[in-house]
């Protein structure tokens, strides 16, 4: 009973926060509501006994990705009037995208059911010493090792491409050479001068 109540509580928060992400006028609020979305969906995953995925979701998306998102969003000069102006102009595009996504999800759920039956308590709870993490690891590195490695390579290529596309060398830029700074000696920087002391008359 308790898991069911918790599920509905989290699901309500999740849907409300997700609506908030697109409705909120202030982009910072949107980003924060998206954080709330991630955290609540992680809670739902924990209810499904997928604690590894849940914690990694929080770690990666809340801990790193959304921090960078906020980083960028906060830099924006938020002009609410300007944001409101274009809102309805592209609404039709948004509606079409949403409809297509919903249709796709319904299609997948109807045809495959994904092997999950969330709403019933038919699946027995896993034993207490069952390690979700090692099960996932074993599967990833045996059965799905090639797709896994290919995905890793795709990510690596994306990283290198992103760096290569944005890397610019400006001419005449003043850069500190750290090795030279570290290797500096006192004799190169300080000149000791011998002077006659001033004589009191």
């Amino acid at each position: 009973m308790l898991p069911l109540i918790l599920f509905y509580v989290f699901a309500t928060i999740l849907v409300a926060a997700a609506v908030g992400v697109i409705v909120a006028r202030n982009p910072v609020y949107s980003a924060l509501l998206l954080v709330l979305c991630f955290v609540t969906s992680a809670a739902i995953w924990i209810l499904l006994e997928a604690e590894f995925l849940a914690l990694v979701l929080v770690l990666v998306y809340v801990g790193a990705v959304m921090v960078l998102f906020l980083f960028v969003v906060m830099m924006l000069d938020i002009d609410l009037e300007a944001l409101r102006a274009g809102f309805t102009r592209f609404a039709w595009l948004g509606w079409i995208t949403a409809a297509v996504v919903v249709l796709e999800i319904v299609g997948v759920v109807l045809t495959k059911r994904l092997g999950i039956n969330v709403m019933s308590s038919a699946s027995p709870p896993l034993p207490a010493d069952y390690s979700n993490t090692s099960a996932l690891g074993t599967l990833l590195y045996t059965r799905y090792v090639y797709p896994f490695e290919i995905a890793a390579m795709v990510l690596l290529v994306a990283i290198i491409a992103a760096i290569a596309l944005t890397l610019r060398h400006r001419r005449g830029l003043k850069v500190q050479d750290i090795a030279r700074q570290v290797a500096v000696r006192a004799s190169e920087r300080v000149r000791l001068v011998q002077m006659e002391p001033e004589q009191r008359k």
Partner: peptide, 25 residues
């Protein structure tokens, strides 16, 4: 006594930064 305790700790310590960022903004 959580099985994935190390991940839990890592995710929580990474969430502390929101307080700092939001305070600043």
């Amino acid at each position: 006594n959580v099985d994935a305790g190390l991940l839990y700790v890592l995710s929580l310590t990474s969430m502390g930064v929101y307080g700092v960022i939001l305070a600043g903004w």
